[in-house]
Structures are given as structure tokens and as C-alpha cells.
Nucleic acid binder design. Structure first.
Lengths: 121, 121
DNA sequence: AGGTTTGTCAACCCGTTGGTTGAGTAGCGG
DNA sequence: CCGCTACTCAACCAACGGGTTGACAAACCT
């Protein structure tokens, strides 16, 4: 699938096993076998997970004798954090503005229980 | 099914259309039809996307006449941010320590081709 | 009451994903 | 060289995801 980078990252981290591996790799590089040890799945399955993480740019693999040490590339996290923070900030700001509006309103004119404020354009 | 909360959030945001909807909702609440407008898919498809976002806790829906205004619940972002920041920090710290070790090493004793060619910073 | 708007539910299609097993490759080490 | 270790590649399979269409529900508007 030709999904964009952000989709690949989110998608890669949507799997608990893969998140777990990332957690493990944050402590230090590891080989495929080391990474596979805690899980009750075949080595091939782990290999596939690593491919997903690699395609997402979350991980890189070098070569060291027969081993393929896996290394966490933490910069990719920035991509996500930026996206998340952007919309969180927007939403929070909007929320704050709404609060101001409500606060400036006499109680008996306050709108229905839920926040409305739709129909933008 | 039965995936944990974090998996649901990451998985929900792994779809560009859904991320787009979140972006739209950061500006303000919207109805299903309003949300569907920009996309060339059926209303039912959009409805499904919203269900995914709702199950992930990213969005809530109230009732207002026949309309179902959709509201962004930005707090859930915290869950992700916490997870991300935790491992990013660990990884960065480890990286810093590694640099220290390397710096304290005479050049001709340096380990195998260090790590990857890229030297951030 | 009947019709329109707004949206959901259900069934189905089909490509992707996560798992399996089996076979193959790359690099040590005797 | 042969064999062990450490993986990867390929084929297959069941389950899931995102899309569709068709039918339906709920609230409004005459």
C-alpha cells in the first residue's frame, strides 16, 4: 500500500506487539532472536513485524556477522507528535474560546446541554 | 476486537481520511453530512469512520434534532503523547550515553562501523 | 399523516494483515 | 567443506478493514 508516512507510523504502532518491541528497543538495540524471545510466535512473524516497523521508519537494521541488530530511530516520533500537538492545540484553544463565550453569557440564555457552535462557514 | 485503548487510538489515526476528519473537527463540531462532503465516498463509509473514531474515544456524538453533531475529544491525545514521549526520551537518553562512551574512546578502538552512517547533530 | 432530511444497520466484496509452515541464504566455526 | 546459527522469502490461510448497496429509524416540515 502506498500509504503516506504518517499512516505507516500510526499503523505500525497500532499493534501492541510492535509497540512492545519499540519499548524494548528504547532500552537498547537487539537482534531478531532477542526481540522474539518474549513472544509466543514464530521468528518469521517477528521478522514481519520488524519489516513493518522498518517501513514506517521507526527502526533500522544493520548487519553484524549473521546477526541483524535492530535499532530504534526515535526521530520519527516527531512526525506524530507534531501532528497530534497541532490539532490538540487547536481543539483546546477552541474550547477555551467557547468557555469565554459561555462565561460571558447570562445563565438563563446558556445553550442546550451540549456544546453546539456548529455551522462554521 | 478487544484491542486496548492505545491500539484503538493509533489504529484510528492510521487512516488519512480519519486524520483529516480530526483536523476538520479541531476547527469545530460538525455533522456527519458536513464531514462527508469533502470525500468521494458514501455517507455510510463516513459513518463507519466516525464509529472507529468514537470507539477510540477521539470523538463523541450528541443528538440535536435529526442531526448527530460530532465533537473532538482532544484529551485522548494525551494517551498517545505520553506513550510516545516516554520511549522517545528513553531512546534519546540512551543515545546520549552512547555518545559519551564513544567520545571517551580512542579512535582506533572504536567499535564496529559505529552505527549507521547518519550522525544526527 | 405523508414526505424529506439525516443518519445507522446489515450484508456483501475484496484487498490487507498477522499468523503459520517450509525452504533458502549468509556468515561463522569446526 | 560441512554444519550450525540467524535470519529472510514464499505460499497459504483466516480474520479484519474499508468500501459498496439496500433497507430502515428518527425527527423535522408541511
Amino acid at each position: 500500500m502506498a500509504a503516506d508516512a504518517l499512516s505507516r507510523v500510526f499503523s505500525a504502532l497500532a499493534d501492541p506487539t510492535r509497540r512492545d518491541m519499540v519499548a524494548r528497543l528504547a532500552v537498547g538495540d537487539a537482534t531478531v532472536n532477542e526481540l522474539a524471545a518474549p513472544y509466543d510466535v514464530s521468528l518469521q512473524a517477528v521478522s514481519k513485524h520488524l519489516k513493518v516497523l522498518e517501513d514506517a521508519g521507526l527502526v533500522s537494521r544493520s548487519r553484524e556477522a549473521q546477526r541483524r541488530p535492530v535499532h530504534l530511530e526515535a526521530q520519527v516520533f516527531d512526525l506524530m507528535t507534531k501532528w497530534i500537538e497541532r490539532y490538540r492545540r487547536e481543539a483546546e484553544e477552541r474550547y477555551r474560546r467557547l468557555d469565554d463565550v459561555l462565561a460571558a453569557m447570562p445563565d438563563d440564555v446558556a445553550p442546550t446541554p451540549a456544546r453546539k457552535e456548529d455551522t462554521p462557514t
